[in-house]
Amino acid sequence: MAKVLMIHPDKCTGCRNCELACSFEHESRFRPGASRVQAYTWEREGMSVPMMCQQCDDAACVKVCPTGAMHRSTTLANLVDWDERVCIRCKMCTVACPFGNARYDAASSSIFKCDTCQGAPECVTFCPNGALEFVDDEQQVRSRKKAYAAKFKEAFQEVS
């Protein structure tokens, strides 16, 4: 069973608890710069969007990695994992990712990309608004689809 991280920008309030939880899980301290997820806020519009690695099947970061450090996990389904022992820090992955979801951190000499906390993402635990969801692939759009279905239901109830 493969789980996927889903983002729901419509529910995000911009509180950045996801960033705090992520950096705390990885470093036992609070450094949003070390977070693998970022919630960006457009202040004028009051709109926020969380961004993180989508664990692409056909992942550009894996393709360009010359050492195999960036690879599909053999233990966890649907995870692109990073092996720091094999990585030479050439940073090709950070250039290749079209979403900007992998970056190099000089302070820790690491590549920062979402590792789903090895199957139990802390950002999801700490999001107070349900804007992040870690769900089975079969159910990944269920909440969104059902929410829309509920609107149809309301509309049809009124005419029937």
């Binding site: 419509d10 309030t13 911009g14 509180c15 950045r16 608890n17 009051g46 608004n129």
Partner: peptide
């Protein structure tokens, strides 16, 4: 929409 301050 509702909005939250940092860590709210």
């Amino acid at each position: 929409r509702p909005k939250g301050c940092f860590s709210c």
